[in-house]
Design a binder for these strands. Structure first.
Lengths: 202, 202, 202, 202
DNA sequence: GATGAATGAGCGTTCATTCAT
DNA sequence: AATGAATGAACGCTCATTCAT
């Protein structure tokens, strides 16, 4: 039955996610994934064309999950500043999840330079992230709470700072800094977007 | 002579840098490095303990080079805004160099999660980057051109935005966007640091 | 099934035995073992941790086989002189088997000096050999056919002469001498143990 | 000058002997030998055709040394029993020397099965050893102190027991047993050769 | 004579992939 | 649908050998 197969595939993707997060993209063997998924070695090859196919689906699966979560978070709020806060707080979910995701995500970003499919998937993820940014900024400009920044530029900037901050945080290997980076990120973005006199001069 | 050996080692590191940039960290074989360096297979093993030792030295070599270049760039300027511009322009040197460096750097960041030595080296690189930021901000605050932001926070933020922007740029695979990202990064940081009313509220 | 795996392991050990006997311990490659076993190169690594693990098991397997064979031989006899004859004849089975075994055994003895596990296995083999000697001598002394030699000493001596003789025979590379060495060994041991006046003077 | 070259060659053989004794025949690299000899890597290749050539000369050199020493020892004595004692005591020189020699010798014996030149050299060594035995026995029979054993047989037996005993001793890795094995060897040979009633019945 | 940098053949080991069951 | 035994390609590493200096 299709549903069962889908469950198996997700079971394997979860295992692969865990495995890559703990052991690293290139150390992970199909045997590792099988072990984490508590299935036999052949199963992964049965449900995916090959190892790369697993990773391709893993990247899609994990970025989709991240996007949906972030999108859901801003949907619950109604003002632009609240949405911004919700976005940043969703992106900085918690040390454990962030570590797991960014460890894996960094490996994929690195691979994306040599793998078009990864790059395509990341492009879609970026588009999704930017669309969240745009949505927030447009609302803010309608509300008058956000400055008249270029919407595209700003949405790029938002994601760049989020990713840049979380990568820097990850490298510190210090969970205590998580709140600091989150709050600093939010504060910087708030200042950046807030309507003072800092109109974009372009 | 020691000097000759040192040259050989650098020759190999250059080759490894090129190889990793083009083929990716884990695809690179010792044979690849030898080919890029135009030497025989055994040479790399002769000058480095093993493959990991090559990469360890490569990361040190390349981050040191980046830091020195950026530090030299700000040293030529005398006002904080000029230094900031020089820093960002040095970091966004040109598409070709940025692509090469960030491709390799991303791979190391990904590996750093599973390799303490890489993490240590990156920690030193971060410290160096932050020190550049601090130097600029301190000067700006003395001059009165920069706002009274928390210096540490701001120096983290500067690097986070630079790295975040360049990684995002890299993923677009579109050299045309390089200037855009550079200018946007500089503008955002300028706004962030410039003394308007956006005093740090902490 | 476990039994099938056990068969494979023994198949590989037989192949390794043959390979070491013909090519020598250090010339033997995993490919050689695979060729002798008529399996692919990966199989040996599949059933054993590594090459050394193969040899470790090979030494255990082959010394155990030799001991069991010799022990079975003396068990069939009922008087000490008959047992002694049976022991020596079992040890000097035939040129072909002796050549194969001592070629391999010599390599292991040589390696044992640098490999504790080999030494341990050989220690167990020695204990087993000596126990055969002790059993024969004790019976002989009970029967009154064997002199009052020190049992431990004599059991060491018996094995030393058997090994010393077979090594010397092996080095001659002349099968014709096999019977001569066997008979001389038995005769010398008989004289040594037989109850004349040569009581141990210690 | 020829003499200087000869010295260099012996220096290398000594180093090789030490290296093989400590590290084992197959672990020893030309670099090891160079290190032990305190010369540079190229020297060994300069004075010997190749690695095997070193070992070939090493075996000759070391067996010759052993033979000469044993022959000198018996030459100092005048009665057969004294010569026998001298022979055994020379063969069982001391734990340290015996360990060094037999470690190396065992490796050569093992290799001899796959290397005709080693076998030839060992044949000469055996001939020399047997000639010592024959000399002693002939004298003993002339004196009437030794029984009428077959001289060839007995000389083989003597060396077989000496080698068998020392190999067994070596494997125990216990210097304390050295005297025991030596005395037991001598006693057994004495009993074997001494003129009681144990005339050889062949 | 002596050095040691450079070469490249060869081997152990890993592991994705296949396929008989 | 699932297993895991078997295969063999590929790579890191070692080291004997060569040779320019």
């Amino acid at each position: 039955m299709n549903n069962k197969a889908e469950k198996r595939r997700e079971q394997i993707l979860r295992a692969a996610f865990q495995a890559v997060s703990e052991k690293g993209f290139h150390s992970v063997t199909l045997q590792d994934i099988a072990d984490y998924a508590d299935v036999s070695k052949g199963v992964t090859s049965y449900y995916f064309q090959n190892k790369e196919d697993v990773f391709r689906h893993l990247l899609e699966w994990v970025t989709e999950k991240i996007y949906k979560n972030e999108h859901a978070a801003i949907s619950k709020e109604h003002t632009a500043p609240d949405k911004l806060r919700a976005y940043v707080h969703a992106a900085f979910a918690n040390p454990s999840d962030n570590r797991k995701f960014y460890r894996v995500y960094l490996e994929f970003l690195a691979q994306a330079n040599h793998n078009e499919q990864f790059r395509d998937t990341n492009d879609r993820f970026y588009e999704n992230c930017w669309s969240i940014g745009r949505e927030i900024i447009q609302l803010g400009q309608k509300e008058g709470t956000f400055a008249n920044v270029d919407i595209d530029k700003a949405s790029y900037t938002i994601r760049a700072l989020i990713d840049g901050s979380l990568i820097q945080w990850l490298m510190q290997n210090n969970d205590q800094l998580h709140t600091f980076y989150r709050d600093n990120c939010l504060e910087t973005l708030s200042n950046y977007l807030t309507n003072k006199n800092n109109q974009n001069s372009n």
